[in-house]
Write a protein that binds this DNA or RNA. Structure first.
Lengths: 199, 199
DNA sequence: CTCCACCTCCCTAACGGTCGTTAGGGTAAT
DNA sequence: ATTACCCTAACGACCGTTAGGGAGGTGGAG
């Protein structure tokens, strides 16, 4: 109940000011309670932060998976391209992505280990999901041993390079990067040799 | 003299802990002086931070330019590929890149405007430099109106996507992303139509 | 139905600590 | 004499955290 409200307010503050910059008083004020009342729900700042990390990772994973699932009958290019605009929408609607990026790249140094133990599996799972999607679509022979991990990683790389700009300079510049990068990437992907049997 | 020592120590702390997380006492301790002595050289934390921003932007711009200049007779692909390993070396030797990324993507919210006014021109200048390099190399007809800004932006995107991983998970994973992404990007670039006359 | 213990949730007050910053004085070189 | 540099001492503000208590609801025992 109130624990979730605190968590949601904390998410916004952590995303904007980072772990060190966020203050429990301001979080409490957003919720409409006093600072010590937070301790009725969380043992301290660290536990609150970790709770936000787990929450964001969990919901974001679910949302991403369900996006790719919902796009099952869409052709591959549209599905991969659509992920960019989906990302932009996600970013417009909540602060999850911003929080995720911030704590992934610049976690509080004293919680580094703990945060990474949550974040790393998340990204590896994302990569495996993408690799599976690429493999299913780019090759008809499902017995081929190509694992498409490289292609998935390349896709993630251009997603990251664009998303960074989404955080940094907003949606307009994000879309610029996307439309500049995508045609090159897609042409390069189709001429892989691996993917020659598509279309 | 001592102002530079303070600046260099501050750079390391800002890179590791961010603006809010870094403390003047620790910076002073690294230099071997007491905290208030910093005020003999800088008006306050803000001014020190901005000084670091200007310093890093300035030296990094110079270093990047001189890298591309030194590679003038190298073929384009090697030059562009070499930039990745150059980045890895830079990152190994100093904290400039880490600082630059951190303050670019997550500047202290109260100094956002001021920081961006320094950072944005820097990145635009980088993009124009790359566009010029690409244009000179990919087309023999220098009167063509193609500006190669898109290609430059795509290159920057995959650089960013890889460099992010460099900060995040270190050189090993950075090189993985690079070698996964580069072949696809390069094939896509050469089949642009625009670049068809190269080799 | 009443009473009392219990639990949850929030409060005020205050703790020790660190933060950035200022005041003011000493010392050595110019 | 002035300037540059560093010091100690102390300021007020804010930090995360703890102590302790009050209000409101729940649930079992009489």
């Amino acid at each position: 109940m109130s624990a979730e409200l605190i968590r949601d307010a904390a998410l916004i503050h952590f995303a904007k000011d980072g772990y060190e910059g966020a203050s429990l008083s301001k979080i409490a004020k957003d919720v409409g309670i006093k600072k010590p009342s937070i301790y009725a729900h969380y043992k301290g700042k660290d536990e609150l932060f970790i709770a936000v990390v787990k929450y964001v990772l969990d919901t974001e994973k679910r949302r991403m998976f369900s996006y790719f699932l919902s796009q099952k009958e869409n052709p591959l290019e549209n599905r991969l391209k659509g992920f960019f605009t989906w990302m932009a929408e996600e970013n417009r609607e909540n602060e999850h992505a911003k929080f995720l990026l911030r704590i992934s790249y610049f976690p509080p140094s004293k919680l580094n280990r703990e945060v990474m133990d949550f974040v790393n599996p998340f990204f590896h799972q994302m990569q495996r999901l993408l690799a599976r999607v690429l493999k299913n679509q780019l090759t008809n022979d499902s017995n081929r041993s190509d694992d498409f991990m490289d292609e998935a990683l390349a896709y993630i790389t251009i997603v990251d390079g664009s998303v960074i700009e989404l955080m940094f300079n907003g949606e307009e510049y994000f879309l610029k990067r996307f439309s500049a990068t995508w045609p090159i990437f897609w042409r390069g992907l189709l001429t892989t040799g691996k993917g020659a049997d598509e279309k």
